[in-house]
Design a protein around this nucleic acid. Structure first.
Lengths: 223, 223
DNA sequence: AAATGTATGTTGGAAATCCAACAAAAAACC
DNA sequence: GGTTTTTTGTTGGATTTCCAACATACATTT
C-alpha cells in the first residue's frame, strides 16, 4: 500500500542511505502510515504530545501558531518531501505549533519516539535513521543560527553586509550570485525592499560592493 | 585521571541518565580527553573538520567568527558544564566558527562521530548519549526558532509583544515574571533600552499591559 | 540618614526606516 | 518590434528608532 510513495520517500533526507528493500521494514519500525488530508484540516495540534513527525507526500502544509489571545500567525510551510514537527519530537516537548493542510494532499506520519527509545533490535537502518534525523536537526540549527546572526544586526547595511560576507565565505570568493531577487532578499533580511535598494545604491557609490542583479562582488577596504 | 571531573560531567546534559559507573566506559567510547587551555588559546579552528565536541570543565570559551575580510565577531560563549561545537559535528560540516579560551581552563574533547557511526557495540549508554545529543540539538533548535520569531518582527512594540505573548503562553497565564531586567530584555529583543522603556510606557498607557519591574500582565483587548 | 550606585523612565534632536508613489530598466509576451 | 508585465531604483514625507543626556526611583552601604 505504501509502494506508490517509495520514490518520494527516497528523496526525503530522513531516509537517505536506506536501501529500497529496507525501506518497508523501516516504515514498519516507525509505524508509518499515510493519511489523506483536506484543505484546512489540522494535522498536528498545538499542545498535543509530539511523538510523530510528518512528511509531506503531496499538497503542502502551513505551520502556524496561535498566541495567547488566539491570534494566528503563519510561521512556516513544508512542501512535498519535507519533514515537519521533528524538532518537537526530538526535543521531547509538546507541539508548540499547529500544522494544517493548505491543500488537499497526503501526509505520512511516523512515530519518531519509537526509533529513539523503544525499538530494541539495533537494525542497520535504525542507526541510519537516527543519524539522518540528527543531521537534519543540526543542519536546521546552523541555518537558524545563520539567520539569527543576520537579523541581530541593527541596520539595513549591517544586515546586508553580514549576509553578503557569509555568502562570500561559503562561495570562497569575493564574487558570487545569490538565490534571491530584491524582494526576496529584503524579506530574508527583514527590511523594506525600497530601503534595501537604496542601501545597495549607497554601498555601490561608497565602493563597498559591485553588483548586477543577483551577482555581487565585495570590494576590499583599506582602513 | 578523569575521576576528578565526574561531578561536573554528570551535570552535563550530554551525560544525563548515564550511571556513574558507566560514565568511564562512555568516555572511553567517545575517546574523551581533557586538555588544559590558556587564555586566548584556540580550541577549534574555523574550517577544520568538526568531529569533536567540547565540554567546558572550568574557565569559559568564546565562540567567534571571522568574516571574509578577517574581521572577528563574537557570536556566543560557553560556560562550565556547557557543550560547544555539537551542531557542526552532528551536521557533518566543517567548523564554521572558531572557539577560543577566554580564560585559562580545562576542556573535555569527545569524538562525537564515533558515537554516531563507528561504535558497533550497541551498549545501553550508547543509545542514551545519542538520545541526549538529539535532544540537546533539537532544544537549541526550538530556542533559536523562538528568538527568530521575535527578531523577525519589525517594530519594538511587535517584538516586545511577541516575546510577552510567548511568555504568557509558556506560563499558561496572563501574568508572569520574566528573567531579564530592562537592559537584558532590550538586548534580547535587539532594540535600544531607552526605546524599550518608552514603548513599555506607551503600552501601559494604551491599556495593553500592566507591569512592575519584571512582572508583566497582558490585558485582554476587545476589538 | 546620608551617600553612593544601579536600574528605569523621559526627553529632544539626529538618523534611519517605512511607506506609497512614481520612474526606469529588464524580462516576458504577442 | 512593440506592448505588457515584472523587477529594480528613486524620491519625499511620515514615522520610528537611535542616541545621549538627564531625572527619578530603588537598593545598598556606611
Amino acid at each position: 500500500m505504501i509502494a506508490q510513495y517509495m520514490e518520494k520517500l527516497q528523496s526525503c533526507p530522513l531516509f537517505a542511505g536506506v536501501a529500497s528493500d529496507e525501506l518497508n521494514a523501516v516504515l514498519g519500525c516507525l509505524q508509518a502510515r499515510v493519511i489523506r488530508v483536506k484543505r484546512g484540516q489540522i494535522v498536528f495540534q498545538e499542545g498535543e504530545p509530539a511523538d510523530q513527525v510528518g512528511i509531506v507526500l503531496s499538497g503542502w502544509v502551513q505551520i502556524v501558531r496561535d498566541d495567547y489571545f488566539g491570534n494566528r500567525s503563519i510561521i512556516g510551510r513544508a512542501e512535498p518531501g519535507q519533514l515537519f514537527g521533528e524538532a518537537f519530537a526530538c526535543a521531547g516537548t509538546q507541539m508548540q505549533v499547529s500544522v494544517l493542510a493548505a491543500e488537499d494532499g497526503e501526509i505520512m506520519l511516523a512515530n519518531c519516539r519509537k526509533v529513539l527509545t523503544l525499538c530494541k533490535n539495533s537494525c542497520s537502518f535504525h542507526n541510519t535513521i537516527i543519524y539522518n534525523l540528527l543531521q537534519i536537526v543540526a543542519r536546521k540549527n546552523l541555518m537558524l543560527s545563520r539567520k539569527l546572526e543576520i537579523l541581530s544586526q541593527r541596520s539595513t547595511r549591517e544586515k546586508l553586509m553580514q549576509y553578503l560576507l557569509e555568502e562570500a565565505g561559503s562561495a570562497g570568493s569575493s564574487e558570487f550570485t545569490i538565490p534571491y531577487d530584491r524582494q526576496g532578499l529584503a524579506d530574508f533580511l527583514g527590511v523594506e525592499r525600497s530601503a534595501l535598494s537604496a542601501e545597495i545604491s549607497k554601498m555601490r557609490a561608497a565602493q563597498l560592493i559591485e553588483c548586477r542583479k543577483n551577482w555581487f562582488k565585495l570590494l576590499p577596504q583599506e582602513k
